[in-house]
Write a protein that binds this DNA or RNA. Structure first.
Length: 554
RNA sequence: UGGGUCGUCGCCAAGCGGUAAGGCACGGGGUUUUGAUCCCCGCAUACCAAGGUUCGAAUCCUUGCGACCCAGCCA
């Protein structure tokens, strides 16, 4: 638990609305929310904000939150997505009160539509999609009524029944609400309620050939479930009058209140489902769970914890302002949680051989290292030390820059948790590349500092003989630009360095057998997570995030 | 040019007529066998602008300006 996690969740405008509803006993003192994903893609960080909001509100007010799939467009939806969403919501740490599907209500929705027709509030239109579009008018000009607008009720009823019965071709007819073709709000210009579409639905199969549209389905589904506060994003603000019209006209006993908040916009990331899908399909990433993806599955595979995401969602707030969150906020939440909970371990990404000439050849000494310097209760581990160790190539410099604190020729450095060594010779190959360092160690520096001199640098290392081979994947932001969408084509904003695979890494022996998804801090290099691609012969780690680097080279 | 919304520090964000919380970022210092963590300190006389009401305005009024969303048989 970090200090922050103990702080009360900050209130926001939706909480204020609910508070006053509770004061006036508006919904009998209850709070019922829902998270309503469409199963047409994987959940991403933007959904996490909505999930945390809806489930968080229910928890805060001792209410309930349903998970409801908005599965009214079978063309784009599938069971694969349903299963993935179920998993991701649970992984994020939330339990739904009830699992529902809008398709559960198809029969009820149909009955409501029949009622609407009988009340003269809906009609069957034979206009084509193009004709409807053309007659809708523009932002500044009113639409023109369809010739079918005044079709007799009996005829509408007959036609609608036959639409359901499959007597007509896809697109031949559509059921429209009869509202106001001259409304300044385009959503009220007789919106379509039902379309004919012969598509297999992942839950209802071929039972239906007509499917209800969002504006009609969503509000009624909310009402059926007794939702008190229907929270959605800003772009639905214009739809609220329609939401209310449907509920008022159908005369449902329950009338949820739609409240809109600003969706998450995170720098260097993209959350358009269509574009994420394209990244997967065109193999710019390895899949929906590629660690560079902003999906929950991707974040999970990268090693991000549910707690970090929840904390992030809390920290960014809930408002109606069109805001962009800096990536650093997310990274900070990730580091905060990982710093607290990750065991420290040593791994050398790009090894450089160091021979300690005065250390007995063949001798192995088991050193005890702390698993977490600030949390002794997390215990210690034994690490083998021997004559040949591997250090990071970047931890030695033949021509060190100013303020360089690592190893140089003739200089000393501390091998973390072990001895101080001094380099006295550089061994190069025929092409002048440094292949080995010859050093001496000071046997009197284990667990204590030498007297008479100060050694500032501390570097990580592993025993050449005992360490394990590993592949380490260094992930970075997928895009080079804060807002990839400003490009004429978002793919041009892809970061060519978003993945660097290192294949000759060596990790300390204590990591043997570490299970998939276990997270560690590789001291001085960052936080890493065991990938499922690990094999018995070679472990695979994904970098979740680097450590902060506060120092500036001048 | 229609309708709907929004505008408080570099980025988020409290504030709801009584004299600008907090987080991230940034700058300075301390501790440290991770250039990490941790700990101090600093960081809006100012709330899109201009008028007005008021003893008093980020909060109320007026007028501007800027940004976002809407013309799917998608959600």
């Amino acid at each position: 638990m970090s200090a922050h996690e103990n702080l009360p969740a900050p209130a926001h405008f939706i909480r204020h609305i609910i508070d006053s509803d509770l004061e006036t006993n508006k919904n009998g003192g209850t709070v019922v929310t829902r998270f309503p994903p469409e199963p047409n893609g994987y959940l991403h960080i933007g959904h996490a904000k909505s999930i945390c909001l809806n489930f968080g509100l229910a928890a805060h007010y001792n209410g309930r939150c349903n998970l409801r799939f908005d599965d009214t467009n079978p063309e784009k939806e599938s069971d694969e997505y349903v299963q993935a969403i179920l998993q991701d919501v649970a992984w994020l740490g939330f339990q739904w009160h009830e699992l529902r599907y809008a398709s559960d209500y198809f029969e009820q929705l149909y009955a409501y539509a029949v009622q609407l027709i009988k009340d003269g509030k809906a009609y069957v239109d034979s206009a084509s999609a193009a004709q409807i579009r053309a007659s809708r008018g523009t932002l500044t000009e009113p639409g023109t009524p369809s010739p079918d607008r005044n079709r007799p009720i009996a005829e509408n009823l007959d036609l609608f029944q036959r639409m359901r019965a499959g007597e007509f071709a896809d697109g031949q007819y559509v059921l429209r609400a009869k509202i106001d073709m001259a409304s300044a709000n385009i959503n009220l210009r007789d919106p379509s309620l039902y379309r004919i579409r012969r598509v297999h639905h992942q839950r209802t199969g071929d039972q239906w050939c007509i499917y209800p549209l969002y504006d009609y389905t969503h509000c009624l589904s909310d009402a059926i479930e007794g939702i008190t506060h229907s929270i959605c994003t800003l772009e639905f603000e214009d739809h609220r009058p329609l939401y209310d019209w449907v509920l008022n006209t159908v005369k449902t006993p329950c009338h949820p209140q739609q409240i809109e908040f600003a969706r998450l916009q995170l720098e260097y990331t993209l959350v358009s489902k269509r574009k994420l899908n394209q990244l997967v399909t065109e193999q710019h990433v390895t899949g929906w769970d590629d660690p560079r993806m902003p999906t929950l599955a991707g974040l999970r595979r990268a090693g991000v914890t549910p707690a970090a995401i929840r904390n992030f969602c809390e920290r960014i707030g809930v408002t109606k302002k069109d805001a962009w969150i800096e990536l650093g906020v997310l990274e900070n939440c990730i580091r905060e949680d990982l710093n607290q909970h990750s065991l420290r371990v040593m791994a050398v990404l790009q090894p450089l051989r160091v021979v300690i000439e005065n250390y007995p050849n063949g001798q192995t000494q088991w050193l005890e290292l702390s698993n977490h310097p600030q949390r002794p209760e997390l215990g210690t581990r034994k690490l083998p030390f021997s004559q040949v160790v591997l250090i990071e190539q970047s931890d030695f410099a033949e021509n060190p820059p100013p303020k360089y604190k690592r190893l140089v020729l003739g200089g000393e450095v501390r091998l973390r948790g072990a001895y101080i060594i001094k380099c006295h010779e550089i061994v190069k190959d025929s092409e002048g590349r440094i292949v080995e360092l010859r050093c001496h160690y000071d046997p009197d520096t284990l667990g204590k500092n030498p007297v008479g001199r100060k050694v500032h640098g501390v570097i990580h290392w592993v025993s050449a003989e005992h360490s394990l081979p590993a592949q380490i994947r260094l992930y970075d932001r997928l895009f080079r630009l804060p807002n990839p969408d400003t490009q004429e084509h978002f793919l041009t904003a892809l970061n060519p360095q978003s993945l660097v695979v290192l294949d000759h890494c060596r990790v300390e022996s204590s990591l043997a057998g570490a299970p998939e998804e276990s997270r560690y801090q590789f001291e001085r290099t960052g936080y890493f997570c065991v990938d499922r691609d690990s094999t018995e012969n070679k472990m695979v780690f994904n970098r979740t995030v680097t450590l902060r680097e506060n120092w500036v080279q001048d």
